[in-house]
Nucleic acid binder design. Structure first.
Lengths: 339, 339
DNA sequence: TTGTAAGCGTTATCAC
DNA sequence: GTGATAACGCTTACAA
């Protein structure tokens, strides 16, 4: 029992395919009765237009490609949630592909999407990516492209990011305003840029409040693990006994800090305030609950896909496309680990 | 600059589309020189066959639909990782859709996939789903279907599951073998079935080792949170002071148990052994590290998609399709919270 | 060895 | 109001 086609309906009704097509699409020049009989039969046979045929004709696939480093990570799975939901609401389907943070795999995935003729591409660049020829290729082939999260200035296209610097600035300012003066910062590795931005926000907040920035107060976590948070807290408190706050660039590390403090009788937040970043669900599960910075991750996905679809629509209508960068706002969530 | 087609190449070379097509597909009846010139030009123009056209002709989409309750959850994002990777390796693209654990949304998503003419469907049923008419519809329309994780006996199709009962059995047996006799079990809510299976494994292990099963030793967690683990541990230890082991149906709850013990000076594992379930990455981040049961989640996704693709291939070749249920093996990971 | 023609399912154009 | 025809890009019997 293959699928019902316009032809099937036309044959049964003894009319032409053209008329069937028109009847189904509410063309004005179709007799009411013809129209009704067509619709009735179509309904009865459960006719569904074949998207493959429509897409071939319209030279579009109504499918979007998304390349992310991985999905089994809270940040990306949340983004993907936003992406798929929003795309579906707008009539697009999404193909998710992984780069595994590898430049060459990313390149392969771009090629695959190109071959599959997706209508547009959304991507968060692999951390490793330095070579951006494959991304430029997309631009050259005039495939609408939007970069999100991990982006680069070298590509001219719309971008959507969390405003990491400002988020970090607000978090540190909050610590300062609640009386902290000796704030240690645990930052992440050099690429990706986000960690540098968070570091810059930290520095800027100190400067604004006339606190001298001391590089030795900044520790670089390479693994971003709970254990690193634990160990670096130990180290930081040994090297800087005057520390009264720790700002970690991600919740898991902050949770490690909290664990160290608790294991060593350091009262949080009385003696030391701890501020995380991300508002990961586990930050609600510590005692006291972790203060952190909420990032609108799902909204990031939605916004990115919206911009992409807008752009696709504009190009189709031959409107001029203007690129821009959206910075999504964040929020400090003060819970139990800050004063 | 539209995309290069067979026609373009044919015109430039002054030959027919057919010959170009054949040359590109290594048909034996093409002159070597013709073939080479075609290939050369195709290469130069970066010709890529239009999958829309191919699919229309072949009446297949080389696309698979996957419906899961959500993706922003460790289990599903790991499964999705396996699914997408394996599908891509086998030449298929994947459309992920969410049911949000709602029966009616799940139905909508099935319909959407049907309209989009995916070649097959993989799904983990919404917990809420009782109505299965939409799933039967898939069977009726002869769309290859594989159920994984949350399945039902009411649908005749291949299924892939983690062997929850056996996994649980092994975990509890491990506790018994390391000297525990009074084992409390924190189980999950009634649907999904997995929690009941884990409970049954617990019960069976007790029976095998001649330990009387006492229903009051079983507590039902509805939220599966850290706090529930904490609170139920308090309650369980009050009601059953003789308890020497806690087996929680998921790591987060077990972590809550551990936290309660540590906050109350109960030595783990000396006084009480704690066994989790899932081998969530956070189970490596506690001190001591949590003993747990590893589930091959990514493999679950790979296996499910493999079976689906096999089935698609079999149907295409008009081979008989036999359904079966694969139960993936699990492993007890003994770490620091058990003796 | 090469090419013609039909067909996959849909839609737009243009006759009638 | 209706329908024949061409076109989207590709594949494959079947001729030549």
């Amino acid at each position: 029992m293959g699928n019902v086609t316009l032809k099937n309906i036309a044959e049964i009704l003894g009319i032409s395919i053209t008329t069937v097509s028109k009847a189904l699409k509410d063309y004005p020049d179709v007799n009411k009765e013809t129209r009704d009989s067509v619709r009735l039969l179509a309904e009865k046979l459960d006719y569904k237009p074949n998207p493959l045929a429509i897409n071939l004709r319209n030279k579009e696939s109504k499918t979007l490609g998304v390349i992310i480093p991985r999905v089994d990570h809270n940040f990306y799975s949340t983004v993907v949630n936003g992406i798929i939901t929003e795309a579906e609401d707008r009539g697009y389907l999404v193909i998710i592909l992984f780069s595994g943070d590898s430049s060459s795999l990313e390149e392969d995935q771009v090629k695959l999407l190109l071959e599959k003729r997706v209508d547009g591409v959304l991507m968060s660049m692999a951390t490793e990516t330095e070579e951006i020829g494959h991304i430029k290729e997309l631009i050259k082939k005039k495939i609408p492209l939007v970069l999100f999260d991990k982006t680069t200035e070298e590509i001219s296209c719309s971008k959507v990011r969390i405003d990491d610097k400002k988020a970090s600035f607000k978090a540190v300012e909050y610590l300062i305003e609640t009386g902290c003066k000796n704030i240690v910062h645990f930052r992440g590795p050099l690429p990706p840029q986000a960690y540098t931005d968070r570091f810059l926000g930290y520095k800027e907040a100190l400067e604004k409040h006339n606190i001298t920035y001391d590089p030795s107060n900044v520790y670089v976590c390479d693994e971003l693990t709970f254990n690193e948070g634990y160990e670096f807290t130990k180290k930081a408190l040994e090297e800087h006994p005057e520390t009264d706050a720790i700002f970690a660039m991600t919740d898991l590390v902050a949770l490690g800090s909290l664990a160290y403090c608790q294991a060593n009788g350091i009262r949080v937040p009385d003696q030391i305030s701890i501020m995380g970043f991300s508002n990961w669900f586990m930050s609600q599960n510590s005692t006291p609950k972790l203060s952190t910075v909420h990032q609108p991750i799902k909204e990031l996905g939605k916004e990115a896909i919206s911009i992409l679809i807008e752009e696709i629509q504009q190009r189709k209508n031959e409107f001029p496309v203007k690129h821009f960068t959206a910075q999504l706002p964040t929020e400090v969530i003060a819970r139990g680990t800050t004063r």
